[in-house]
Design a protein around this nucleic acid. Structure first.
Length: 773
DNA sequence: TAGTTGGGTTTTTTT
DNA sequence: AACCCAACTA
């Protein structure tokens, strides 16, 4: 069984007792190691019941289960192979009552949390213009990741007004969730730790149970998860963590890279194993990845190697704009797929931000390529799905005020804000849940004739609940949609939109049917559970040959023969935020992301970047990504486009954050971080010129370059066209200049385009080209 | 109460 | 460009 393992992998497999740190580089066969380790434990007579393996996604868990089953035959059933969140839900469903929740608590997603916070802010009279819900929620999330409860948060905030307000909001938010018998994602971890700390009996039982614990993607665990693992493993636990500090990319959601860097400090007697042979990528790809990541400081020293051939050079492509980039990628994948349709499934397009998917998707449709966009709006957070689920959750747990309020007037039942406020008032006065107050609508005097609408709603929910006794859940969903006339909610939408929504509801019904096929005995609560923790990537089925489009984050842990990296530009990847950040660690995290991206590729890697790109409605002129410039030229089939000016630093700069490759006009000569001018929307003057490393104070940063600059767009001066001239625009085609007037920073030009009609734009970045007649 | 409009804000990444 | 919210109108 172990013949396929290399020496190091074997070492990790055999070290079953005591703490083990396995530093596993990208593509070094860590899943193979983990599955064999589980198989080995079983072979040695360890009861499957005593094994726990924690993976990053449900998809990874499913795959690991399959591989274990294949190794040992079907008997891995009782092994817990799950994600952190799923394990915690399982534990809390059993014991949440010991920390003051009902065991059938609801799980709130980000959307739900935001609604609660909106309410909280209203109650506390927090001006959300000054202190945004998002900001509060992310502070709370950060606190929970660090296991900081509200009272401690408040104590730490002492003296700081802003933090003090957040502390109040945190406290109120937590109380609201509790009275709705709900937990958010972070609670799932934090409350489990709380449970273990509060209840020795429960902890003891789980410690006895999970005698062998393995944690995959360990570099992305946060403090709460680390505590959880420590508690479970106990003092003498057999804990094996597997990870790669170079692939730590989830700092924004609390991942603490110190967990892996300091593991040996927490467990001084840990066995350390390094998996450094890469089985995935060609040598060129691996060399590129190594070159990029070597620019990071403060990483565990390691060098990945391969005995594979060099393979193709890395393809580097420059485009004028994102549209052409999309066109190219789609046509390339189309070309591969036409030769062999199976190839579609071996291709992936990766990008930094979800917003980039749209244009790519359009081209994929155009080319008729089978594809799937992973991520973006999660299936379960679509409006119609959330509504239906809110019905189901209300039927399941009417204590969940949020869900009740979501659907009480969806579709329209003539129940408005005033009525809801009155009911809430009554509920508060009598310490009832919102739904309980609804049940007593007749007793609320202020309601008047609105009361009948509420009683009708309550009895409708009751009917649904009783129907569940006699019909399956999928049938019930149909009944809900029909009897509430749910689709009337979307009367104002286009046929296309409505069709999409119907498709989604059908898809939900399919998922319900599929779920009950696997779990015939499951309750409604079980289904809602299942649904709460699905990530988009979990939904990607194996064996369907279609190209995948997704963010680099989603691609973590996956591999593809052909990887296309779109949008390799400074300002997009790495993002502006990290470029301008004064914390050098931020850019390092981006670089790790680049490393993850590159190492997804097995056979070919294509890097794409565009001269211009629309970002948030603004045209941007970006320099090639510094990460591209960090790849040795010899590995590339093309040169990185020459910047306009020659004074730029050469590729491979590692201290790139020390000198900003370009600057916004606001900072010229000041050498400081650009500060947005308050009250002033960014004007086109801040458009980043297409230069790499122009440096501070460079004239080109102002666009005052001679030569092939934006044609006719010399700022400060009058363009070389005038009213009455014919001009050409890259995107809009040809048109007639109908107006031209000087603005505060730039000329404003109005053009009547032949194809798309009239547009008003700033001369500096419209790049209009005069057509001589 | 429902529907519309205008203004302001935003996303980088997700369980 | 897309989204969200508050204010206004019917």
């Amino acid at each position: 069984m172990f013949d396929t393992l290399n020496e190091e992998q074997k070492k990790a497999v055999l070290a079953t007792e005591g703490p083990v740190l396995c530093l596993a580089g990208a593509g070094s066969g860590k899943t193979r190691m983990l599955t064999h380790r589980i198989a080995y434990l079983l072979e040695r007579g360890v009861d499957p019941y005593n094994i726990m393996a924690i993976t990053f996604t449900n998809k990874a868990a499913g795959e690991m289960k399959e591989r274990v089953d294949r190794l040992i035959g079907e008997n891995g059933g009782s092994i817990w192979i799950t994600t952190f969140h799923s394990s915690c839900v399982r534990i809390l469903r059993r014991y949440a009552d010991r920390i003051g929740y009902d065991n059938n608590f609801s799980i709130y997603d980000t959307d739900d949390s935001k609604s609660v916070m909106r309410d909280v802010c209203k109650r506390l009279r927090i001006d959300t213009k000054i202190l945004r819900e998002r900001a509060i929620l992310s502070a709370i999330s950060g606190a929970k990741d660090e296991l900081v409860p509200p009272d401690e948060f408040r104590a730490r905030a002492a003296g700081d007004f802003r933090m003090g307000r957040i502390a109040e909001a945190y406290d109120e938010y937590q109380k609201t969730l509790k009275s709705s018998n709900a937990m958010d994602f972070d609670d799932l971890i934090m409350k489990t730790v709380e449970l273990f700390k509060a209840d020795g009996e429960v902890l003891d039982s789980y410690q006895k149970r999970f005698r062998y614990i393995m944690v995959d993607e360990y570099q992305d665990t946060n403090t709460a998860q680390f505590q959880l693992i420590r508690l479970l493993a106990g003092e003498k636990g057999n804990l094996c963590v597997v990870g790669d500090d170079d692939q730590s990319i989830y700092k924004f959601r609390g991942a603490n890279i110190r967990n892996i860097l300091d593991f040996e400090h927490y467990y001084p007697d840990a066995t350390v194993v390094r998996l450094e042979q890469n089985y995935r990528s060609t040598r060129n790809i691996l060399d590129a990845a190594n070159a990029v990541i070597s620019n990071n400081v403060g990483r565990k020293d390691k060098s990945l190697w391969t005995d594979k051939d060099k393979g193709e050079q890395i393809h580097l492509k420059l485009f004028d704009n994102a549209y052409e980039e999309a066109e190219y990628i789609a046509s390339e994948i189309g070309r591969r797929g036409r030769k062999d349709p199976g190839e579609f499934g071996n291709c992936a397009v990766l990008y930094r931000t979800n917003a980039q998917s749209r244009m790519l998707e359009e081209r994929f449709v155009y080319e008729g390529i089978p594809y799937k966009v992973v991520g973006g709006v999660n299936f379960y957070s679509r409006r119609e799905i959330k509504d239906i689920l809110a019905y189901l959750r209300t039927i399941d747990n009417a204590r969940d005020d949020l869900q009740v309020k979501r659907i009480i007037n969806v579709p329209r039942r003539g129940i408005g804000a005033t009525t809801i406020a009155k009911v809430q008032e009554y509920a508060d006065a009598y310490a009832l849940s919102f739904y309980e107050a609804l049940e007593r609508a007749d007793e609320i005097p202020s309601l008047g004739k609105a009361a009948s609408k509420l009683t009708a709603f309550v009895s409708m929910i009751r009917v649904f609940r009783s129907k569940l006794e006699v019909m399956t859940l999928d049938k019930l969903v149909r009944v809900i949609v029909d009897e509430t006339d749910y689709m009337s909610e979307f009367d104002s939408e286009t046929d296309e939109e409505i069709e999409g929504r119907i498709e989604n509801i059908d898809e939900l019904i399919n998922k319900i049917v599929a779920f009950y096929e696997v779990n015939p005995e499951a309750t409604l609560g079980d289904f809602l559970n299942e649904v709460a923790l699905v990530a988009d990537i979990d939904e990607v089925e194996e064996g369907v040959p279609r190209a995948l489009l997704m963010t680099i984050h989603s691609a973590k842990g996956l591999e593809f023969d052909h990887v296309y990296l779109a949008g390799m530009e400074d300002g997009l990847f790495p993002s502006d935020m990290t470029i301008t950040s004064d914390n050098p660690q931020d850019i390092e995290e981006e670089r790790r992301l680049a490393y993850v991206a590159i190492t997804r590729a097995k056979e070919t890697l294509t890097l794409c970047y565009a001269r211009t790109r629309m970002i948030r409605g603004e045209t941007r002129y970006n320099a090639p990504s510094r990460f591209v410039r960090e790849i040795p030229e010899i590995l590339l089939d093309n040169r990185v486009a020459k910047p306009r000016r020659e004074e730029e630093p050469s590729p491979g700069i590692s201290d790139s954050f020390a000198r900003k490759p370009y600057s916004s006009p606001y900072e010229i000569g000041s050498g400081r971080k650009p500060v947005a001018v308050p009250g002033k929307k960014e004007t086109p003057a801040s458009v980043k010129p297409y230069i790499a490393g122009g440096g501070l104070g460079s004239l080109s940063a102002l666009g005052v370059t001679k030569g092939p600059g934006p044609v006719g767009g010399v700022k400060g001066g009058k363009p070389d066209y005038d009213i009455g001239d014919r001009v050409r625009h890259v995107k809009f085609g040809e048109g007639l200049v109908t107006d031209l007037e000087p603005g505060p920073r730039d000329y404003k030009v109005t053009v009547d385009f032949d194809e798309v009609g009239q547009k008003v734009m700033y001369a500096a970045f419209a790049k209009l080209e005069k057509i001589e007649i």
